[in-house]
Simulated scan of single mutants.
Amino acid sequence: MQESTLPLLFNWAALMALTVILAFAGDVVGLSQPSPIWLVVIALAAAFKARIILRSYLGLFRAPGALAGFFSAVFILLALVAVSFLIFPTPARTSGGKPAFAQTFAGGTE
C-alpha cells in the first residue's frame, strides 16, 4: 500500500468508528429519545467527524486558520442544536391529528 493512502485509510476507519458510535448513541433501532449524556456524545462524535472531513478530505490541514474557523462554526452550530434539544426535549404537537406529511403519504386528507 502506498504511503499516501495510509492516512486516508486511517481517516476512513475513524469516520466509520464514529458512525458506529453515532448509531449506538442515537439508538437507531429504538424509538426512545436520547438522554442528555448521549446527546452530548452525539454532538461530539459529529464534531469529530466534521473535523476529520475538513482537515483530511478538504485539505484544510494546509490552512490552519481556515480549519479553525470552519470547525468553530460547525462546533457552535452543533452546540446550538444540542442545547435546543435539551431545552425542548419533545416536539410541539398539533391538535392531536395526524401530521400533515403523514396524511400526504397515507393517501391524502381524510
Rank of each mutant, 00 (worst) to 15 (best):
A102K: 04
T5C: 09
L8V: 09
N11E: 07
I37R: 12
T90R: 10
F48I: 06
T5K: 14
V81L: 12
L58R: 01
R55C: 05
I76L: 12
F48E: 03
S32K: 13
A13V: 11
A23P: 05
Q2N: 14
F105H: 08
L54Y: 01
L60F: 09
A92T: 13
A23E: 14
G26H: 04
L80D: 06
I21T: 06
M16C: 15
F101S: 14
I87H: 07
V74Y: 00
L54T: 00
A50P: 01
G108M: 09
R55H: 04
A100C: 11
L9K: 07
G65T: 01
F85V: 05
I87R: 15
S32E: 13
G26M: 07
F75L: 10
A13P: 13
G96L: 05
V29A: 15
L31T: 15
F71H: 03
P36N: 12
G30H: 05
T109H: 10
K98G: 10
S72K: 03
F71Q: 08
G59A: 07
I87D: 10
R55Q: 10
A50T: 01
I52Y: 02
S35P: 06
P89M: 09
A46C: 07
L31D: 15
T109F: 15
S35E: 15
G97A: 14
T5H: 11
S95W: 07
P64S: 05
S32V: 07
W38R: 09
S56F: 05
L60E: 01
A45V: 01
K49A: 11
P34G: 14
S95R: 12
T109I: 15
R62A: 14
G107K: 04
Q33V: 14
P36W: 08
V74K: 00
K98N: 12
I21H: 04
S84A: 15
F88R: 07
A82D: 13
G97N: 12
L58Y: 02
G59D: 06
L60K: 01
E110Q: 12
L54C: 03
G65H: 02
F71V: 00
W12R: 10
G97D: 10
S4C: 06
T5R: 08
A14W: 01
A23H: 05
P7A: 03
E3R: 06
I21L: 14
S95L: 08
S56L: 04
Y57K: 05
L54W: 00
A14K: 02
Q103A: 11
A45C: 08
F70T: 00
F71K: 00
A63F: 01
L60D: 00
P99I: 14
G65K: 02
A102S: 10
A102E: 10
S32C: 09
V41P: 04
G108T: 03
E110T: 10
A50K: 00
T109V: 13
Q2P: 13
Q33R: 13
V20L: 15
S4Q: 07
F61L: 02
R62E: 05
L78F: 03
L78M: 06
G97P: 05
G65W: 01
A47K: 02
A102L: 12
L77E: 01
L39M: 14
T90D: 14
T109C: 11
F85Y: 11
E3G: 10
Y57V: 02
G107I: 05
A23R: 10
L78C: 04
L78Y: 02
